[in-house]
């Protein structure tokens, strides 16, 4: 039996507090990139009861993603936006998911992200990360952006932190561990970084702007 919307809201409000849950349930968050970071972040936000998730990716699920991304083997070949929407709806049927199969760039970012107050950068390519963060900071100085940089390898999980690097720009990760030949991404450490990002997003929704 799938719980009703009222039952799920009541359950969340009992655990998180009514005032906080109201804020979370009325929040809208953009998750840009649905790989190891974005798929885990989207799930954490849906579980917390975030009302609207605007999710974006241009790629399909690949066998090489299954070591760390929140997809199942039977979803290989499907667009990540479609696959994660199904997974999010299975967890929280009442989260409004707005999927877009799109590659974000300098030209389309201002239009595509104009309605999102909190933006999560969850790309893997460092130049795409820079383009998104710069575009938001230049076009929308009032919006919040939470990014990730440095979560590859099996280094200590304790080196991954959240830093407020600019007024409305938070950066999670160890800042240095990049993907290269022989240095890959592990679900465990990527999830630590994704957890930092999701947690900071929920703190912003709660009005707690310090890290």
């Amino acid at each position: 039996m799938i719980p009703t919307e009222q039952e799920m809201y009541k359950s969340l409000a009992e655990r998180h507090g009514e005032d906080l849950q109201k804020k979370i349930s009325s929040a809208r968050v953009a998750v840009c990139g649905l790989g190891g970071l974005g798929s885990n972040i989207a799930i954490a936000l849906a579980r917390a009861g975030v009302g609207k998730l605007h999710i974006m990716d241009f790629d399909r699920v690949d066998i090489s993603n299954l070591n760390r991304q929140q997809y199942s083997a039977e979803q290989v070949g499907i667009y990540k936006t479609i696959a994660i929407t199904a997974n999010l709806k299975a967890i929280n049927p009442y989260c409004e998911v707005i999927p877009e199969i799109i590659k974000l760039d300098e030209k389309n970012i201002p239009e595509i992200l104009k309605d999102d107050d909190i933006i999560c950068e969850a790309f893997d390519n460092p130049e795409a990360k820079a383009i998104l963060v710069n575009s938001i900071l230049e076009n929308f100085p009032e919006k919040y952006i939470v990014g990730g940089s440095g979560m590859a390898s099996l280094g200590s999980a304790n080196t991954i932190t959240t830093r407020r690097v600019m007024k409305n720009f938070y950066l999670c990760g160890d800042g240095v561990s990049e993907v290269s030949d022989g240095t890959g991404l592990f679900s465990s450490r990527v999830m630590v970084c994704a957890g930092h990002q999701a947690n900071m997003i929920l703190r912003i929704i709660a009005g707690e702007l310090n890290v």
Binding site: G36, G38, A130, E138, P141, S149, E178, V179, S180, V190
Partner: peptide, 28 residues
Amino acid sequence: NIVPKSEYDNTIISDGDKLEIVRFVGGG
């Protein structure tokens, strides 16, 4: 204040200026 990428060449840094440079590495 954020400096647009297109202004990196034209923006002269003066004595006393404070900069924050955030670097992105690959992986996600």
